[in-house]
Write a protein that binds this DNA or RNA. Sequence first.
RNA 1: GUGGAUAUGGCGCAGUUGGUUAGCGUGCCAGGUUGUGGCCCUGGAGGUCGUGGGUUCAAGUCCCACUAUCCACCCCA
Length: 419
Amino acid sequence: MTKIQAPKGTQDVLPAASYRWQSVEAIMRDVGSLYGYSEIRTPVFEHTELFQRGVGDTTDVVQKEMYTFTDKGDRSVTLKPEGTAGVVRAFLEDKLFAGPLPVKMYYVSCPCFRYEKPQAGRLREFHQHGVEVFGAPDATCDAEIIRLALEVLKRAGVKDLSLRINSIGCPACRASYHDALRDFLRPRLDGLCDSCKSRFERNPMRILDCKEASCQQRIEGAPSMLDHLCGECRSHFEKLQSYLTALGIGFTLDPRIVRGLDYYTKTVFEIVTKTPAGELTVCGGGRYDGLVEELGGPKTAGIGFGLGVERLLMVQDLQNAAPAAPARLDAFVCTLGDEARLAGLALTDTLRGAGIKADLDHAARSMKAQFKYADKSGAPIVLILAGDELAQGVVRVRDMAKSEETLVPMDQIIDYFRQ
RNA sequence: GUGGAUAUGGCGCAGUUGGUUAGCGUGCCAGGUUGUGGCCCUGGAGGUCGUGGGUUCAAGUCCCACUAUCCACCCCA
């Protein structure tokens, strides 16, 4: 029989590590609600067409990375490759646009799926925290979600953060920029790498992002999107920069941030952190003012970001910023003999009823083995119950760190923990 | 999709030019202490040496294929 293992690119979150997830999830919830956001949860899978139209047919994500399958009803469905499209769909389907705008939403550890070759910080099933805001066209909102993302990362203990922003304009000014860029690239096309050649027609801006040194050399002096922004896009971007400055948020302009998803307009940004293993992008996002309309809704501004949970946890590890594990137990109950065992079960139940994290031996083991287990469980207090204690109506309370024992009357044991 | 490295008990490793019953550390279980953890001592359980072929009298060791894991590119969270 072949051993069954987890599918490639997936990970178990084991009991010893789940507190780490709970910790960053609590941070996201706390910060989200502090900023006036409410949680939204959308399905893990959607109709494939949503992503084709929303994320964009020409993107790598849609073209080669989606988990798409046909269900028993012959519908093509896809495990969500990112968080935004599903939220937009819900916004439309549940007619949130008819309520008070803006609508501000966040999501926590949203599972996302991309069929890629796994490696450090890249999985096939991964999780994102994120926010989406609808009906907030002003650049104050761009600044707000950036501030929110930075706050989440800061509370998670991430160090050496840097913010990179860019504007990719609106469809109108981007089209004229594409023309200018193609005019610049056309005479140099022969020297570019194959993937850049294919990008030329489809999405020439991605060529600016190419990692090939020879391509970088050839595109030296290429026109910048920022020089081709229309009046409105330019003014939006300038406002964003002044708002960030007013909030004391440092940033760098990075014209090479293009983002791999088609729906972005105007502001795009990435938050990068330095680790001993190199720079790592932990958060990326931007504005998508055309997406709601593209998916059949009323013209509505949109903006959001996705923050990779696995990457965040990885950065915490690399930067020694991981929170310490909380104590699993407040007390462990050790017993000897059947009568004491029964009393121990009742005692444990009483403790739990009083909100004290308690456990007892479930393997009918020796006192020594029970103590070993109690020690490894991290319980600071061990309660010992055997014939002598039962006869006296007391519990023997052992402080594990001090190795000191005292006798506490059974009916005062809760008070002992309360003091 | 392209390239590179690795694969031996739960974890970390050794295994010498192919040569007897595959070792070590750690963890786990138990005993030493018939009521007591961390330290120490003793014992025990646990391995189709990733899978399948091949070479050989003999393969953990050599050859081939496959699979998985890790890393880089690509892409991105």
